[in-house]
């Protein structure tokens, strides 16, 4: 039965996803227009998928992981190896890569979620580093060691070689689906509980929720997105660098999420676009691109922790000449007994 409320939300959802589709289709053109190049769209959307899943973990569940390169990297290697040694089918390669990301995140999540807060973050960093070192040395016959996995053949999807424009559209479709799924998750009862965990974990536990399992599942969901993005990256680049598992990769997705704006799903994707665009533009001008990125990142953490999305929101509020947020707050302090208002 379609109630008016339901119809309303359907329309809204439709509008949002339509806007997403337009953005994805128009991205290559938009990039050329602002001084980039259209092929940059592919890595942007790839990292966007990575960052999207990451936001579910950091923005909604409140867990900061410094180890997600593990899932991106393992997904990359798995997909690459599939293409090199098993079949040149696009779907099996990406499927296997995503699965590997899922399993790895289940194991790593189980281990690291035994601790909370700061400990958790440290442990994610540590165990991801383990995978990096394992790929460098003990497992180098599989991973190509220091050189990475080279010479990956182009993948085949129904007779079409996955490169250039073709692969961009496949990746864009994947991103579209990924965004829809992420929004569904966050609007489900599951998403409500994840947000509650971020808001007040003690209260959630005392309200009958097994927080451990919810956190683990959020971790795995973000690992699936990371593995998926990593697999697609291997297909796109036809090469997997060892850096895919390095802490700098984990750091990149963290910076993208913060710069874009955590907790918004779209923010981190925008962050990916900004970071990659700037990297592209600035690395032609200076060798110190990473230094600048680090400073920008710190700037956001210090002054604009809500990221670009939040800055945009505030700007919009300012421009629409509504009362400043502080006034709004005071007016909004409600109480049955106004004298008691804090």
């Amino acid at each position: 039965m379609i109630t008016p409320l339901y119809a309303q939300s359907l329309l809204r959802e439709g509008a949002v996803m339509a806007a997403v589709a337009v953005a994805l289709i128009g991205l290559p053109w938009f990039l050329t227009a602002i001084g980039g190049y259209s092929e940059l769209a592919t890595p942007i959307v790839l990292w966007g998928i990575f960052a999207l899943g990451f936001d579910i973990l950091i923005g909604f569940t409140g867990l900061l992981s410094f180890g997600h390169a593990a899932f991106w990297g393992l997904g990359s290697y798995a997909a690459g190896l599939m293409l090199l040694r098993v079949t040149d089918g696009f779907i099996p390669a990406v499927l296997v890569g995503t699965l590997v990301g899922a399993v790895a995140s289940l194991l790593l999540g189980y281990l690291t979620l035994r601790r909370r807060g700061i400990y958790f973050s440290i442990l994610t960093l540590a165990f991801a580093e383990m995978f990096y070192y394992a790929a460098l040395s003990p497992l180098q016959q599989w991973t190509g060691g220091d050189n990475g996995l080279t010479g990956i053949p182009p993948a085949d999807l129904c007779g079409i070689a996955m490169k250039g424009e073709a692969i961009y559209y496949v990746i864009a479709v994947t991103a579209f689906i990924g965004i829809y799924v992420a929004r569904r998750i966050m609007r489900s009862p599951y998403g409500l509980i994840l947000r509650a965990i971020k808001s007040n974990e003690t209260r959630v536990a005392s309200t009958g929720i097994d927080t451990r399992r919810y956190k683990l599942m959020a971790f795995v969901i973000s690992g699936v997105y990371a593995g998926l993005a990593g697999s697609l990256s291997a297909v796109y680049q036809t090469y997997v660098p060892t850096d895919a598992l390095h802490w700098t990769t984990s750091g990149q997705v963290v910076m993208m999420a913060v710069i874009g704006g955590v907790g918004t799903l779209f923010g981190p994707m925008i962050g990916a676009g900004i970071v990659l665009y700037l990297a592209n533009v600035l690395s032609g001008v200076t060798a110190q691109w990473l230094l600048i990125q680090g400073l920008i990142f710190m700037g956001f953490v210090i002054f604009l922790p809500g990221g670009v999305v939040d800055a945009g929101r505030r700007l919009a509020l300012l421009l629409s000449r509504r009362p400043a947020p502080t006034d709004k707050r005071a007016a909004g302090t409600v109480s049955v007994h106004p004298a008691q208002a804090e």
Binding site: G62, F66, G117, Q288, L290, G294, L295, F297, V301, I302
Partner: peptide, 22 residues
């Protein structure tokens, strides 16, 4: 919040590292 502390010191680590490289 602790998350912000981690983020800012991480950023600092990156900046210092790149500074030395420079």
């Amino acid at each position: 919040p602790a998350v912000d502390q981690i983020l800012v010191t991480f950023g600092l680590a990156l900046v210092l590292q790149e500074l030395m490289r420079w």
